[in-house]
Amino acid sequence: MSQPFDMDLFLDGVLRGSYSTRQRHLRQAKLIQAELSKRWQLETPWAWKRKHVAWFLDHRLAERSQATRYYYLLTVQLLTRRLEKSWVFHS
């Protein structure tokens, strides 16, 4: 039986800032992971492609406020840095 993916450990090396900021990034990253897992059965960020994350930003956050989309974009930038990808997303 495999262990569930640990997003806390995955982002540990790139998380900076206050405790509440780190918790927000972790909460949002877990939500992104859950949505991509539900839609494409991609359990870990290593399996994600740019199109999957772009889908989340474009479709799942379409009805959210500009501020919410901005904070999710910051979290996606952390995920991109951790994955060592050159993905660029615009708000």
Rank of each mutant, 00 (worst) to 15 (best):
S2I: 05
S2R: 11
Q3N: 14
P4H: 07
D6W: 00
D6N: 04
M7K: 03
M7E: 03
D8F: 02
L9W: 04
F10G: 09
F10Q: 10
L11S: 12
D12P: 12
G13I: 14
L15W: 02
R16P: 01
G17I: 06
S18E: 09
Y19A: 09
Y19L: 09
R22N: 07
R22D: 01
R22S: 03
Q23W: 03
R24V: 09
R27D: 02
Q28V: 05
Q28N: 11
Q28I: 04
L31P: 02
Q33H: 07
Q33Y: 00
A34M: 04
S37F: 02
R39Q: 14
W40M: 03
L42H: 13
L42N: 14
P45W: 01
W46F: 06
W46I: 08
W46D: 10
W48Y: 08
W48E: 09
W48S: 08
W48F: 03
K49V: 14
K49H: 13
R50Q: 15
R50D: 10
R50H: 14
K51V: 10
K51I: 10
V53E: 08
V53S: 10
V53M: 04
A54D: 14
A54Y: 06
A54P: 07
F56R: 00
F56A: 01
R60Y: 05
R60N: 10
E63N: 11
R64K: 11
R64H: 06
S65M: 09
Q66E: 15
A67R: 11
T68M: 04
Y71H: 07
Y72C: 02
Y72R: 00
L73Y: 01
L74D: 06
L74S: 05
T75D: 01
L79D: 13
T80A: 13
T80V: 14
T80L: 09
R81S: 11
R81G: 08
L83H: 05
K85G: 09
K85Y: 00
W87F: 12
V88G: 09
F89H: 13
S91C: 12
S91W: 06
